[in-house]
Nucleic acid binder design. Structure first.
Length: 224
DNA sequence: ACCCAGGGTCATA
DNA sequence: TATGACCATGGG
């Protein structure tokens, strides 16, 4: 992937979908909670679980950690996998409190913070990078299944590209710009919701102007 | 009824 | 290292 290719795809996504204003949260800790809750889960359902936590004043590390795990799971019910996610949230809080809280880890260098997050049970690469980018404003490019699907359709990466390889592919060709990375990942998610169902209509579904289901939002293909 | 959603862990070969 | 099973609710 060249810098020009990465930039042109971004321009097309932005023209098509507009700014996405991610991450929808009031605090860094709320981003961390949302990043765990949204694992393989529609954001709509995550919002309900977060509303439950807010109603019980649990959007704070020590109180969430002190909460009975079974009672926490009940509040997480709408976001699915509630038993798993209750344990994962508390594992994250256990580490966070031991590390000195959000203010303390905010001062850590990105690599140290990334390794520490990945060591928490229930935090994988994508969740860690969501937290690094959207909670701590580090220039880390978040990869997900949509990114791999879209860019392999565009012929810009292998269909089975690994997480780290793909992340470095983006970070190599784009400037380490937090605002750019923020918008880019959000736009890829927005684009995914736009793919023709039940089957993609074309290789770069649906970024091309002549896509049968593109409608009026279509943009011209960028010159090569 | 079926498939998917802003993944990750664990057991098995 | 590489699959498969599992977690579980809500919307199309």
């Amino acid at each position: 992937m060249t810098p020009g290719q990465a930039r042109r795809v971004y321009d097309r996504l932005l023209a098509r979908h507009g700014p996405q204003h991610w991450w929808p949260a009031d605090t860094a800790f709320e981003v961390m909670v949302g990043a765990v809750l949204t694992q393989n889960t529609a954001w709509r359902n995550v919002e309900r679980a977060i509303a439950n936590l807010r109603a019980d004043d649990l959007l704070e590390p020590r109180r969430l950690l002190a909460c009975d795990t079974a009672a926490l799971a009940v509040r997480l019910r709408p976001s699915g996998y509630f038993n798993v996610k209750a344990a994962r949230l508390q594992a994250l809080c256990r580490w966070l409190v031991a590390a000195g809280g959000v203010e303390a880890i905010a001062g850590w260098p990105t690599e140290k913070l990334r390794h520490a997050l990945l060591a928490v049970k229930g935090v994988g690469p994508e969740t860690a990078d969501d937290i690094l980018l959207y909670a701590f404003h580090r220039p880390v490019f978040v990869i997900d299944a949509y990114t791999r699907r879209l860019f392999s359709r565009l012929g810009l990466c292998a269909p089975d590209a690994g997480y780290e390889a793909l992340r470095h592919a983006f970070e190599r060709v784009l400037p380490p710009d937090v605002a750019l990375f923020n918008e880019y990942h959000a736009l890829i998610v927005a684009q995914a919701k736009h793919v023709c169902r039940p089957r993609p209509c074309c290789a770069d579904c649906c970024l091309r102007a002549d896509c049968p289901s593109a409608g009026s939002g279509a943009v011209e293909r960028s010159a090569g």
